[in-house]
Simulated assay, not measured.
Amino acid sequence: MDFLPYLTLAIGAFVGVLMGLTGAGGGILSVPLLVFLLHLPMSEAGPIALTAITVSAFAGAVIGFKAKALRYKAAMLMAIFGLVLSPAGLWLAQKVPNTPLLILFSLVLMYVSIRMLLQVARNLSGKPLPQIKSPPCQLDSSIGKLIWTVPCARALMFSGATAGFLSGLLGVGGGFILVPALNKFTDLPMKSIVATSLGVLAIVSAGGAFISLASGTLNTAIAIPFACGSLLGLLLGKVLERKISGPRIQQIFAVFTLIIAVSLMIKAINH
């Protein structure tokens, strides 16, 4: 009996639960788990992860849209530039050897995990974030929409392009770029930041997954059960979020991510 589809479904569900509990950044663990547990090369794991992120992020974006938290104009602008750069990342991922990609991914994971640990420590200590200056994208509270300016559009375009390139190159959704960027460049509440980020992720990841499918680099036998498991896990994570969410969950996730990053680096060096 072939247990691969069930193992793939279980891994996807685990990633989905993490996404539901921790927000947009949970999908970053898709690639390392596929590399470790299914022994896939980075170039194959990336498109599979993008497929799962597409399905899960779309579900989250729909929930955000219904709650009127999704800033769809900002999401579309960022997604357009993300879609432009995503094919370049996908192309480069097929050209670069597996070991350098593993090292780069482990460094990205280390950055994300350490940044999250510092943020959680600050939240638990009750220290407010220092306010240096007003962000370029201001929310008009009277109509609930962003006030568009050239600096605002430029900041969002650059953020979307960066997330798109890394999405194609490493198979990550880019939530670890988009959420901090929206937090820095806008004064949107966190609910809107996460919903808008998920909207961008859904579009950019879908573009990358479609290109991979069209070029024959997407393993659908693994991608389909992994995406289904991710969606089920996301919905379960959203239910669990009401009961066990909080800074401690972020802290556990960050430590787990750091362990994965170090393990990935060791695997790359010894490969």
Rank of each mutant, 00 (worst) to 15 (best):
V17E: 07
A202R: 02
G26Q: 04
R115M: 08
G168E: 05
H271T: 13
I260L: 08
F81H: 05
K191V: 03
I48N: 05
F158V: 13
P41T: 13
G20Q: 00
T220G: 10
L198S: 02
K184V: 11
P47A: 06
A261T: 01
V262R: 01
V17N: 10
F14S: 12
L102C: 12
I48Q: 04
L34V: 00
N270T: 10
V150W: 08
L50A: 00
I203A: 14
L90Q: 03
I147F: 11
K66E: 09
L40W: 03
R71Q: 05
L33G: 06
N98W: 07
A221H: 12
V55K: 06
L4N: 11
C137I: 14
A79R: 14
L104G: 15
G25F: 02
F165V: 00
N270C: 11
I48R: 02
G20A: 05
G173N: 15
L124T: 11
P87I: 03
I269C: 07
K145A: 13
S167N: 01
L9F: 15
G26M: 11
A202L: 00
P128I: 04
S142L: 10
R248W: 14
G89A: 00
Q251G: 12
L18M: 14
G23T: 04
L4T: 06
V31G: 10
T99L: 09
N270F: 07
G207N: 04
F158T: 13
K243Y: 06
L101Q: 00
I203V: 15
Q138L: 15
M1R: 15
L70C: 04
L38H: 01
I211Q: 15
L234Y: 14
E44L: 06
W148E: 11
I193H: 02
L90C: 08
R154W: 07
L240N: 01
A61C: 11
A88H: 08
S245E: 13
I11S: 02
G246T: 09
L117K: 08
I193N: 00
V200K: 00
F36L: 07
L102P: 01
G164V: 04
L129F: 08
V96W: 03
I114V: 15
A10N: 04
V84P: 04
L77N: 07
N123R: 14
L156S: 05
K73A: 09
V17K: 03
F14P: 02
M157H: 10
V108L: 06
F65V: 07
L146S: 12
R154F: 13
V17P: 02
S134C: 08
I53S: 06
L104F: 12
V84G: 07
I114P: 09
A61H: 09
A153Q: 13
M110E: 11
G199A: 11
P130M: 14
Q251M: 13
L37N: 08
L109E: 09
S113E: 09
L85G: 09
G174N: 15
A153M: 10
A223R: 02
T186D: 13
V255A: 04
M1V: 10
V200I: 05
S197G: 11
P130D: 06
C228G: 06
F256S: 06
T257F: 00
G26D: 08
L231Q: 00
D140C: 03
F3S: 12
A88R: 04
L231F: 08
F105W: 14
A195W: 01
L85M: 15
G126I: 03
V96I: 08
L90Y: 02
I259Y: 14
